[in-house]
Amino acid sequence: MDTNTHINYEEQKVGYYKVLVGLLLLTTLTFVQPHMFFESYTFVTQLMIGALKAWMILMYYMHLKGEKLIGWTVAFSLVLVVFFFLVVIADVNSFQFKDVSHITSQPHIDVDYHHASHEE
């Protein structure tokens, strides 16, 4: 289907450069964010920026825009990954034996790492 459409190189090229500039700006944002804003939410903010970059790459570089079937398959697999994340992370976060399990050692519990493995 795509093989004999007539496309104009110069016109299309502009699109690629625009996306490039966008990605470069976002990359810069990545670097300044930890020192400039949302400092206490660096983890989430960084991933949001990443998601934005990923969206641009998917839509424009990978031409996902306008792909119906392929778009749905991508969406389906992403939803699955998100579901796995939600469940597994929820499980580890509501683990009942957090305070006694030796793999959940928090910094305030003074665990002697050097002996951790011998004590078992």
Partner: peptide, 28 residues
């Protein structure tokens, strides 16, 4: 050519998440 270009974008895409996940979360 089309598919190899897609592959390369995918490799890029993965890095877009690998990078902040490892390098940036502790940058502050």
């Amino acid at each position: 050519h089309f598919n190899i270009a897609l592959y390369w974008d995918l490799v890029h895409l993965i890095w877009v998440f690998v990078f902040p996940y490892f390098y940036m979360i502790g940058a502050g």
